[in-house]
Design a protein around this nucleic acid. Structure first.
Lengths: 355, 355
DNA sequence: CTGAAAGCGCTTACAG
DNA sequence: CTGAAAGCGCTTACAG
């Protein structure tokens, strides 16, 4: 037959692997398995994919060879022809925000359940980097992706949606292959305002994110609407936009209190900025909640143990991730299913010691 | 020539895209670009890859067509033949630990600098899930990967190392294609002990991680060694192993204090467990640092703002990620470079109010 | 029950 | 300066 270098050294027993017990240093392929069994690659492909049409004996010999050679199908080569890789993308702006970490956990868990894998990428909220990772993901033949979009990147999203279906988190983009899952941020903001007012506060201020373009300011919309309803005819409360980080929350709150020292209630963009707000209060000798009450958003794990434990609007991030996966899977079902309509998940007020 | 359905509707001007301005709904390929320009795919490939051998005129026409068709090379198809995809993996146990989030940030940043992308995956510290994601990553033709290994998975790592070079974080595996970058955990533990003793504490306890197998208990080794040196001949201090989470730290500390109420100094596995330790103290009416001093590990962002702000051993996670990327890149340089030797990065004591 | 051919989107030698 | 052929690892019709 062909001259196989291994033949000269190995015993005649065909089942015996090399002396080292190690397969070749090159990863073994369908072809290698076929050659070892003495069958065509097509047959190996059939048993690997659980198709019909091979004898039980063949099946066993193939399985044995696969074991011995540690053969693993190359999903990407397969994807090149099937046009699917059972891999999903998840792109977020900032890994160090615990919100995204738990979203990712939920998404990954749901993906595994459906026998999909997910690759996570971060954009630092930069359009270029988002374009870069989306392109990379697409290039790897992912079947769909979930994205929490960087600011002002709708066009970029539409472009990749031509190739792969997208589920956006907390943001709508008008495109047949893009849908949205979001939390009810407007309702959450309303709950926060009502709670502060229940506690007797009448002068409120809000720390918002400067990364939110005008069509993504749902918390602000809810905040103003609730305020308008409860205090009709009064001037609108103050809103300061900042980076959604601890230091951002701290400085924005300082600015709010500088501009209007009569403010006694703060609604913050998220828990991290809320903690910043509390620090700003402490900075100027105010007590929380005595002098300043603070409501956060998200209910990240540390919110409960911070001093004082944070009153916040809880988002079920695990569920958010799970629903996002289910929606992207539905979109991949082909156009017959149509685009799933946007979903809005409920949020919940959690009262602790900061109000 | 060939019958192109587009020809019947489009104007004769070859440069004009369809009426919608949209390219076909199928992603365009090298072949499409070639057809549009009227040149062979080989030529397009040449200009895409900046090779030699085409006229300036050809180059411009190809570039134009690429623009119009929004052509993007399929990196995976390319990878199938070049055996490299300019993509790296990063697999960690737990996304919601801020330690890994910042490690990932550092790694991603360093990767981008080198024109690589990174795909992040989580294992939940489960061997099966780690095998799954590594296989998926490998299947996507990644060029190398960084992994913070799940417990007891050395064999699995060796298996994938046959195909792709691995840099482990804080763990050594004996294999020619696996190397290690770690923090000086032993030195960090020593600093913690010396600092507690400086503060007048003589009865110490440690909260350790139950996920660390015996060869990965560097903090414990450092803790015991430092204690032995400072208190020769005395009994060894108590160590309780637990899940490295907030609740884990809380219950482990409660156990330590139950078993030996004379303990006044706690060295914790990381900042999260340290915060748990502080909570455990508060639970039983002890003050920190008055009744119980606590030293954490990592210096995550919230350590500085927790009440009381945490004394901790700082790990430069961004740098850790960066070095890991550089090492994996070096390993990919081919065997000529040989395996880079393990690196140990320094850590630093940060004194705050919990001691 | 099994295989030979063509092709997914690309690049690598080779030839002109 | 440019192209035709073969192949990366796989699957999809087709034929026996």
């Amino acid at each position: 037959m062909t001259n196989n270098p291994a033949d000269s050294t190995s015993e005649s027993l065909p089942d015996s692997p090399g002396a080292t017990g190690q397969p070749a240093d090159r990863r073994s392929t369908l072809h290698d398995v076929a050659a070892r069994v003495g069958v065509s690659p097509r047959t190996v492909s059939r048993v690997v994919n659980n198709e019909e049409g091979f004898s039980e004996a063949t099946r066993e010999r193939v399985l044995e060879a696969i074991e011995e050679l540690e053969y693993r199908p190359n999903l990407v080569a397969r994807g090149l022809v099937t046009q699917q890789t059972r891999t999903l993308g998840l792109v977020v702006t900032d890994l160090s925000d615990p919100f995204f970490a738990e979203l990712a956990n939920g998404a990954q868990r749901a993906a595994i359940t459906n026998r999909y894998n997910v690759f996570l990428c971060a954009t630092d909220n930069e359009a270029d980097q988002q374009a870069n990772v989306l392109d990379s993901l697409r290039s790897h033949g992912i079947d769909g992706t979930i994205v929490f979009p960087a600011t002002d990147t709708d066009d970029g999203l539409r472009r990749v949606a031509a190739d792969v279906p997208i589920v956006c988190v907390d943001h709508e983009v008008d495109h047949p292959r893009i849908t949205t899952v979001s939390s009810d941020l407007v309702a959450g903001a309303r709950m926060a305002v009502e709670h502060l007012v229940d506690r007797g506060h009448t002068k409120l201020g809000m720390v918002a994110s400067k990364f939110s373009p005008s069509d993504r300011r749902r918390r602000e919309v809810g905040f103003l609407a609730a305020h308008r309803k409860l205090f009709p005819g009064t001037p609108e409360p103050m809103i300061v936009r900042t980076e959604p980080t601890l230091e951002g929350g701290r400085s924005a709150t300082a600015e709010l209190l500088d501009r209007d020292p009569s403010i006694t209630g703060i609604f913050a963009y998220n828990d991290i900025t809320a903690i910043g707000a509390i620090l700003a209060a402490t900075d100027r000798g105010l007590t929380v909640p005595g002098d300043l009450a603070v409501v956060g958003f998200d209910d990240v794990p540390l919110a409960a143990v911070f001093g004082p434990p944070l009153t916040t609007i809880r988002i079920d991030r695990e569920r958010l991730g799970q629903v996002a996966i289910e929606m992207v899977l539905a979109m991949m079902g082909g156009s017959r299913t149509g685009r799933p309509s946007p979903q809005i998940l409920p949020v919940e007020l959690v009262v602790r010691a900061s109000t």
